[in-house]
Design a protein around this nucleic acid. Structure first.
Length: 307
DNA sequence: GCGTCCAGGTCTACC
DNA sequence: GGTAGACCTGGACGC
């Protein structure tokens, strides 16, 4: 970290049963900038951009029932900035969400008792819904390595720098200001380019309030249609984004989970989407979360073999 | 090193 | 409402 930065030590209280690393590794977001995992130091970092434009790099490490945070910025953070920093981290780690009902439901099913035992269910998300939306578009119709390339390029080209090449996720205004030609050439977003730019323009102009989606009182289906109304967000991307918005009704089927489901339940034989959907109907509003956790359980088994 | 083929979701035009 | 084809890239593969 550059010498001109000042560091404040902050702490977040953690809810009972919260497992920091199982939340961090809940899906692939932790490996996409501006998230960073340091396996040697056992820390998880995230560069934040506050409302007033202040950049704060936060390095997190759990200790007992608290999360220790070292928050580095160009100038000493005010109390309000510290509170905003804590709020953004809390949102990303879903600390304010209540999973009691979900774990109670998990205990009813023998095959899912491990979920309640391990306290999993929180899915890591970006501090802002806009970032989740753009990244989700970058996961469509491509390999994970290309998603990583597009994300890195977006941040590298358009992100504001704190220090030493450490950059924030770009604002809607920054993305909206890029030409489609540049988006294709430098970001390598291909045919997604016009969708990403159009979305950023709608958000920057205020026409599309994606941040309100996280607290929306709309039904899940109405919210799903709202997300689908964004060009580039098909059923897979919208279903996955809904999970990050705290709605778990959709399975968000893609080629990887279809293959994984077939491997787990049909010895690799191809299964129709309808068959998969039917298998999870019994889990009601939590079906998308049970499905995701079941498909990815082996990640946790490898990372946390003592479960 | 080069060319070819394929996988990966979404959109649009068409039936 | 369902379907086919185009979109674009990285990676695998064969030569």
């Amino acid at each position: 970290m550059s010498k001109q930065l000042t560091t404040a030590k902050l702490a977040l209280p953690l809810p009972d049963g919260f497992d920091f690393w199982r939340t961090v590794y809940s899906h692939g977001w932790c490996s996409l900038l501006p998230f960073r995992v340091d396996k040697t130091l056992e820390t998880f970092s995230r560069l934040l951009r506050l409302k007033d434009g202040t950049l704060v790099d936060c390095t997190m490490k759990p200790f007992k029932n608290r999360l220790r945070v070292e928050a580095s910025s160009r100038s000493t953070l005010t109390k309000a900035q510290e509170l905003e920093t804590v709020a953004l981290l809390s949102t990303g780690l879903r600390l304010g969400e209540d999973f009691t009902a979900f774990h109670a439901e998990a205990r009813k099913h023998t095959e899912y008792r491990w979920i309640a035992r391990a306290g999993v269910g929180r899915l890591l998300r970006a501090p802002k819904a806009f970032e989740d939306l753009i990244k989700m578009m970058c996961t469509t119709n491509c390999s994970w390595s290309l998603t990583t390339i597009m994300t890195n390029n977006l941040i590298g080209e358009l992100g504001e720098e704190l220090s030493d090449g450490l950059k924030a996720f770009p604002t809607p205004e920054a993305i909206a200001g890029m030409s489609e030609k540049s988006m294709r050439k430098t970001i390598r977003a291909g045919y997604r380019s016009p969708y990403i730019i159009e979305c950023a323009k709608r958000v920057a102009s205020g026409e599309l309030d994606v941040e309100s989606w996280r607290t929306s009182v709309l039904s899940t289906e109405d919210l799903f249609h709202l997300v689908r109304n964004v060009k580039g967000m098909g059923p897979y991307a919208a279903g996955n984004l809904l999970r990050l918005l705290g709605r778990y009704n959709h399975l968000a089927l893609d080629s990887w989970v279809r293959t994984q489901y077939a491997r787990l339940h049909y010895r690799g034989r191809k299964v129709s989407d309808r068959t998969i959907e039917r298998a999870y109907e019994q889990y009601g509003r939590w079906r998308g979360l049970f499905f995701w956790l079941e498909m990815t359980r082996y990640w946790f088994d490898k990372k946390f073999p003592d479960w």
